[in-house]
């Protein structure tokens, strides 16, 4: 225990004696960590967008105006029996009209235009929810291939799928780029820590020589360097946590307006996953720094 505290003390001394070296090392580690967190943020935002789009996109199948009630019932039964369909709801044309009015309640022009109408321009509609949103195309194909295809009035179903695939492709690209950046920073951080430990070993050459001379154990000679590198990891993680919450606070007003429809709260996301995200990052960055200092020690601290 005594020796442990002594090793810790030596490690801490290195930490503030080489102030600039420490600053550079910690900065690079913070950058690496920050880029990982930006990646996590982007991923969570895009996931939540996709999730929400998934939840709210239904296939609205408009029926031709002279469809009979029996036909509607048969059609709904048929759709419900498609295995990929979770639910097939029915909206009468009056209900559709009402919904349209509600959606455009702020728009006086549209309200006026509706008032002008004698007849309801909308049709009865079957609202289909899929078990899995990827199956929308399949469901549509099955419906179109069926005997009920003559009942269908609309000819464009694909909008929601387009949004989803757009968001997906953008987020994939961003993810891949972010991953690349994070790996790059990780590599740079590895090299910087390696160099920092190398320089620290060099500046302590005399002391290390004396330690050997008087019979300090290898463990005691090496441990301060390992510990110092773990301290780099710890300090940079703390700074990173502070930075992330600052970032969230600055960003969330914009994000909130942008994502208003998706009820996504970044701060809540980070709070909820605090230990998972930062714990994992800590482990990752400790492994990185300790590994890199171990390499430097092997290379430059011959015992």
């Amino acid at each position: 225990m005594l020796t442990f505290f002594r090793v810790l003390k030596f490690a801490l001394q290195d930490f503030y004696r080489n102030f600039w070296l420490t600053l550079v090392t910690v900065s690079v580690l913070v950058l690496a960590l920050f880029s990982v967190n930006v990646l996590i943020t982007l991923k969570s935002v895009s996931d939540s967008i996709i999730d929400n789009v998934h939840k709210r996109v239904d296939i609205n199948v408009m029926l031709v105006s002279d469809t009979t009630e029996a036909e509607v019932t048969n059609f709904r039964t048929f759709v419900s029996n498609i295995p990929e369909v979770a639910e097939a709801g029915f909206l009468s044309k009056d209900a559709v009209m009402e919904e349209f009015k509600q959606n455009n309640i702020d728009n006086p022009d549209i309200q006026a235009a509706i008032e002008e109408l004698d007849t309801n321009p909308f049709n009865d509609t079957i609202v289909i929810k899929a078990v899995n949103t990827d199956d929308y195309d399949l469901i549509l194909q099955k419906i179109i291939a069926s005997e009920y295809s003559t009942l269908i009035d609309n000819n464009d179903f694909s909008d929601p799928q387009k949004i989803i695939s757009f968001v997906q492709s953008v987020s994939h690209k961003v993810e891949r780029f972010g991953l690349f950046i994070a790996c790059l920073f990780g590599l740079i951080a590895f090299l910087i820590v390696f160099n920092t430990i190398r320089v620290t070993i060099y500046t302590h050459k005399e002391e290390i020589g004396v330690m050997r001379l008087v019979g300090a154990t290898n463990w005691f000679i090496r441990m301060p360097f390992i510990l110092a590198s773990a301290l780099y990891a710890f300090v940079s993680l703390l700074i990173n946590v502070g930075l992330i919450y600052l970032f969230i606070n600055l960003l969330s007003p914009y994000l909130d307006t942008f994502l208003a429809d998706y009820n996504f709260d970044l701060a809540a996301y980070f709070n909820h996953n605090f230990w998972l995200i930062f714990g994992l990052e800590f482990i990752l960055v400790v492994v990185l720094t300790v590994l890199s200092s171990a390499f430097a020690i092997r290379r430059y601290l011959k015992v």
């Binding site: 005594l2 020796t3 330690m211 008087v214 154990t217 005691f220 000679i221």
Partner: peptide
């Protein structure tokens, strides 16, 4: 001599004991 210049005489000798626990 191999003494550490940034340490006092006391510290130089104490260092040899410190690093041995």
């Amino acid at each position: 001599f191999k003494l550490l210049n940034q340490k006092t005489i006391f510290e130089n000798i104490a260092f040899a004991l410190q690093v041995c626990g």
